[in-house]
Design a protein around this nucleic acid. Structure first.
Lengths: 180, 180
DNA sequence: GTTGACATGTAATTGGTTACATGATTAG
DNA sequence: CTAATCATGTAACCAATTACATGTCAAC
């Protein structure tokens, strides 16, 4: 149940409404744990029901601002220190590699070349993100940088692997152009 | 719907029963697309219903062996060449990094050190796998090696990142021991 | 006054996990 | 004869996605 803890984690920084949390998911957690509007509102209600968060203020348009309770902070710390992270092992893109044998070598190489291009594109996007964010020194921002670095390293690794794999299935063939 | 295509992919190599597929998921696809018994039998029935696979033989204990149909192969090839892979972006372990600010620096460093150790352990497991498998030259085996290489590179990258991140949050501290 | 952002909620569906339930065949 | 493996299925539940539904407030 990472969604629940992601929300507690965001609220640990400062109180927020469901709408605020939604925006935070979009802008900072999108690459590690996407969540949508339905999920956020639903979980927020459940969290309030179990006393991990509470309504700390009400505003215009029915806005309800939630704050982490002591119990919520305890639960968050417990999760971070005692609960073994779930290993999210699924990867559609790597799964496909197992089955490249049903394609012609040219088609298989094209698949890997597209993945390499995708990785390069993702790397560029993340570098853009890194440059555009105003990295202040609140904890979420500091640690967000660590997570972003993971994304940068992952994209680089993935691109290199895809290039290597292309070479493996087309021994001796010249490396294909990766631009458009 | 990667499960469906993973099953078609396995059946493209050779006909198999639900039980066989289950074992194949455990032994070869577990690290990229785990699936359990309920899922396999349910999907197999649906696949047969839509004509992508068919019962090719029956055996003892109610065993039903399924084979890929022409339609199934077409669908598999379509998926591999035309359908953009889903990007599976969720990572519980990296999500947690955003929230390390609620822990003491020592606790946060301990989290990252445990992740580094986990990566090292995973790397060792995969190297063991690589050594133990008899890599014949059927397509599933050849391409399985490419996927395994991805796992090796991922584990190495993840361990290095975790070590780097530990250093970031404890500037100047000596690198912790990672062995047992 | 109308458009866009703010703001909250519910319903239906899909995909995955866990647990339940049963039985046949083979090897020792 | 008995334990392990082979073999198939169903039911309940949980998490996530998509779509539906509604209404307020501020800026132009």
């Amino acid at each position: 149940m990472s969604l629940r803890h992601a929300m507690l984690g965001l609220l640990a920084d400062k109180p927020a409404s469901g709408y605020d949390l939604m925006k935070l998911f979009e802008t900072s957690l999108a690459n590690v744990w996407p969540a949508n509007q339905s999920q956020v509102y639903g979980e927020l209600a459940r969290l309030a029901g179990s006393g991990l968060v509470e309504v700390s203020a009400e505003g215009p348009r029915g806005r309800k601002e939630y704050a982490l309770t002591d119990q919520g902070l305890t639960e968050l710390r417990h999760w971070l220190t005692e609960v073994e992270p779930a290993r999210n092992r699924r990867s559609d893109a790597v799964l496909r590699v197992f089955f490249l044998g049903v394609l012609t070598p040219v088609e298989a190489a094209a698949y890997l070349a597209r993945e390499e291009a995708r990785a390069a594109q993702q790397l560029a996007t993340l570098k853009g993100l890194e440059a555009s964010i105003d990295w202040d020194d609140d904890p979420l921002s500091v640690n967000g940088r660590l997570a972003l670095e993971f994304g940068l390293r992952f994209s680089a690794m993935y691109g290199e692997w895809a290039r290597w794999a292309t070479e493996q299935i087309q021994p001796g063939a010249p490396a294909p152009e990766t631009g458009s």
